[in-house]
Amino acid sequence: MRRVREPRYLYGIVTMVVIGTIAVYAWPNLVNAIEYARYRMDPSAERAFEYGSRHLDASEPEHYNLERAEFYYREASRNPNLPYVYHELARISFLKGEFNAALAQINLQISLHGSTTRNSFYVRGLINGFVGDYDAAARDYETYLRTDSKNWAAINDYAWVLLKAKRYEDALIAVDWGLIYWPDNAWLHNSRATALFELGRIEAALKAAEAASAAAALVTETQWSQAYPGNDPLIAGDGVRALQVATSENMHTIQLAFEEAQKGMR
């Protein structure tokens, strides 16, 4: 009797594993189908916004899906009173590298809700910075910083566009301000090193670059995801490495310049 039952267990296990594997890999589609069915049963803009937010949330990698987020936010845009719809659509366009669309969407957002969604100015600063309109970006960051003056990312990005606009002293003042509140921040130290280097203060730039490199080595994927919300959490490792490479290469470049300057003095 036992000889007959043993293979049955084996077949049972194999069958469950096969069914389980199929189910697991079909699972996201199944969840999406259920979500879509629920949305069709109650196609409200509020529900669409909720689903859109779920698919753009870096803390939920299993649900992260830009296309689905965009679909639901577009559905949510039927209700212009929802405060952040075009803000989120602009972020998605921005992440996809579609900067013209992003700019149009964030301008619409600011015209509709700019007085209550102040971080829309921050998003527009980012977009303007990416397309190279540094003066416009600086104005947007200044608007945002009036309401959130100790935000290290906004200070760092403000410094970024000031550096690109060759306003090195202003950039240095900005990052020095930020470092009072965020003394270990890798991004701020990196921007400070750049400002000092452009001002010809090479020895100080080297110290700042060393601080940036040391701080970057300690940045975790969680911290990176917090610094770049809306990005796929699965690329956080890539992002951390990119930051570490940038700070490390900057330190090397400044080190070489410092050694050259030392030789020149001898």
């Binding site: 760092n156 990005d157 750049t194 770049y228 990119a242």
Partner: peptide, 22 residues
């Protein structure tokens, strides 16, 4: 995304790394 490996070069070629926290 457009942000993942984005760095900008300063006039002297140093790499500036923006973020987007808020």
């Amino acid at each position: 995304s457009a942000e993942t490996r984005f760095v900008e070069l300063s006039e002297s070629g140093l790499q500036i790394v923006p973020a987007s926290c808020s």
